[in-house]
Amino acid sequence: MAGPVWSIGQVMKLLKPDFADLSISKIRFLETEGLLSPERAPSGYRKYAESDVERLRYILTCQRDNFQPLKVIREHLEMLDRGEEPPSVDQPAPPGAGSDKEPGVQGPVIPQPRAPIRMNRRELVRASGITEAHLVELERHQLVRTKRGHDWYGQEALMVCVASRRLREYGMDTRHIRAMRQAAEREAGMIEQTVLPHARHPQRANQVATEITSLVLHAHAAMVYDLLQH
Results as ranks from 00 to 15, higher is better:
I8F: 00
Q10K: 13
V11T: 08
V11W: 05
L15N: 00
K16P: 03
P17E: 07
P17D: 07
A20K: 09
S25D: 04
R28D: 05
E31M: 15
T32R: 08
E33I: 05
G34Q: 06
L36F: 01
A41D: 10
S43R: 08
K47I: 08
A49F: 04
A49D: 11
S51P: 01
V53R: 05
V53G: 11
R55L: 15
C62R: 00
H76F: 14
R82Y: 04
E84D: 11
E85L: 10
S88C: 04
A97C: 12
D100P: 00
K101M: 12
V105G: 01
Q112P: 00
P113T: 11
I117W: 03
M119K: 06
M119G: 07
N120D: 15
A127R: 01
L138G: 08
L138D: 07
E139G: 08
D151H: 05
D151P: 02
Y153I: 08
G154F: 06
Q155K: 11
M159A: 13
L167F: 09
R175A: 15
A184W: 00
M190E: 09
I191V: 09
Q193K: 10
T194C: 02
L196D: 11
E211H: 01
L215W: 02
L217M: 10
H218G: 03
H220D: 07
D226Q: 12
L228Y: 01
